[in-house]
Design a protein around this nucleic acid. Structure first.
Lengths: 304, 304
DNA sequence: AAAATCCATGAATATGGTTCATAATTATGC
DNA sequence: GCATAATTATGAACCATATTCATGGATTTT
């Protein structure tokens, strides 16, 4: 019999185009999904997926169920928001502190949607740079911190968002363009274009260059597009999350290369006080954040 | 976490207004529903039902979930019809043979809905009286027989619909009006107004009067309204399913009385060939039949 | 007052979804 | 091309948990 888990599974399968990726997405085993899909297919006597070499494609039947999943899961979210209103837990504040500048890319549309859904929640961005953003939570100056920190602390809950790869960004005619993978020594003598934050907040420096004893020059820019402009006009190279690069790479504006043989990866968490984690609007924020990120951002991987 | 079973349960609770009746409706124990409701309430930190003496009422929160249930369950049914279309099992014939005349009351709107949902299924009523309607299935002259027979037969599947009470219908000024419950001897010397079918097809005669050696006169009419007309004009008394009587009783057109201390009950089944039972449109027909009957017909009880 | 009905609750049960281990199949690298 | 890696399918074992069972309290009916 059809259950919500089947709908969630098919939605994930539709997004990811692979059983094992979908399994990570819904925090189950690949085997579990395989069984689920098989059960669906025997129940409806219809194939739901069609293997196309390495990627699986949904059949028409599968797409019908995906469409169902979208309406059903949205309807559920909507009434759960309604229930939160009834229980009078629909108001409060959601002040977001961002550790990672690139996150503006996906945070903006998310905030727009959130404002619609929770008109009584005071939505805000905490501006400025903070050496210990988690402390903002304890000081009551922010309600969520979006960053890569996940050290266990009293009263703090780190909600895993996703895992993403940081790629080196070079101008198309750069001397290193032939190398598919860049290693630490490749960066010596280069100018690194970064956001204006301390060195140990930049993963490339903190985890790759500093351990290798390499200290390239730095130049900073506030906005991602500005960094890309500088790279394209050969003022230096940058290291940015893979998801925002696709368009620029496709237009051969810049090229992107892996850093280290297994890549440079970073995790993103949404950290809150444990008490605020229970609030319905916070839970809804986290859920839709993950949903929209996995739906729109390419190359990101579920965490935990 | 919310699951479809919770939605089904709340929908049933909304229809029946009682946990134990809802439990029968979804073929579970009263205890199971109690646990489900409790789980929902602790999960959303909201009461979903409010006990009002003997009947339970849904709270606002509960009503939200009921509304969700309606949209979700309908959406599921709709896409399951779509899947049947894909698997090309959406055509065929559904010729319905009715053993019980009163069933026209609920069958008509059901057939209208069915025609919309399955435009490619040839929908028909098998007219005339048949001594052994089940044989129509084997002879290929009908696809469903709606009646009270449930004898095990090779290749025949009896799908339980519901159980209903047959009440004696009297004119408001009848001599027996003082008795709350009528017994077999009360019928001696009366004229019985029935549908034009053989005696052993009339439950009152077959199960109550004949065993008591009572053989009242009979007069027949084709339509339920005609029977009620005759009763109201004191031409005799009748025995009819409780569900269709409500309006007439409320307007004091006729009065209705229980037959025997525990009442005279009859079961209704939809019988098909076992092979036809698998067809999607047949399954959909059965499901919506039960849904609409339980939603619109009062005083009926789930079966099996 | 007693009987009957209905709902809540804790413990036991049983269903079935998930994981584990492994095989089969398909890409990718050398 | 062969070997390696990655992905999916499958059967058995396991485990979670929904349901049932047994019971008590509460309310209504006779």
């Amino acid at each position: 019999m059809l259950e919500l888990r089947h709908l969630r599974t098919l939605a994930a399968l539709h997004e990811t185009g692979s059983v094992s990726r979908a399994a990570k997405r819904v925090h189950l085993t690949q085997s579990a999904l395989s069984h689920q899909i098989k059960a669906l297919q025997t129940h409806y006597r219809l194939p739901m997926v069609q293997r196309r070499g390495q990627s699986v494609e949904l059949t028409d039947a599968g797409k019908h169920l995906v469409a169902l999943a979208e309406t059903v899961l949205e309807a559920i979210q909507a009434t759960e928001r309604g229930l939160a209103k009834i229980s009078e837990q629909a108001s409060g504040s959601l002040r977001i502190a961002l550790e990672c500048h690139t996150c503006f890319d996906w945070l903006m549309p998310l905030m727009d949607a959130f404002r619609q859904h929770w008109p009584d929640v005071e939505l805000d961005l905490v501006s400025g740079f903070h050496s210990d953003p988690i402390r903002l939570l304890e000081e009551g100056l922010a309600d969520v911190v979006i960053g890569s920190e996940n050290k266990r602390r009293r009263d703090i809950a780190h909600h895993p968002l996703f895992c993403f790869e940081i790629l080196a960004v070079l101008p198309p005619d750069h001397a290193l363009r032939r190398k598919r993978i860049l290693q630490a020594p490749d960066f010596s003598g280069m100018t690194l274009i970064t956001y204006p934050v301390p060195e140990d907040r930049i993963d490339l420096i903190h985890h790759v260059l500093k351990p290798a004893g390499i200290h390239p020059e730095r130049r900073t820019a506030e906005l991602t597009v500005a960094i890309l402009q500088l790279v394209a006009s050969r003022r230096g190279i940058a290291a940015l999350p893979s998801w925002g690069l696709k368009n620029y790479v496709e237009h051969e504006y810049v090229i992107a290369r892996r850093i280290g043989s297994s890549g440079l990866w970073s995790n993103l968490y949404a950290s809150t006080l444990k008490e605020t984690a229970a609030r319905p609007y916070l839970r809804d924020f986290l859920a839709t954040a993950k949903n929209t990120c996995f739906a729109t951002l390419e190359g990101i991987v579920p965490l935990e």
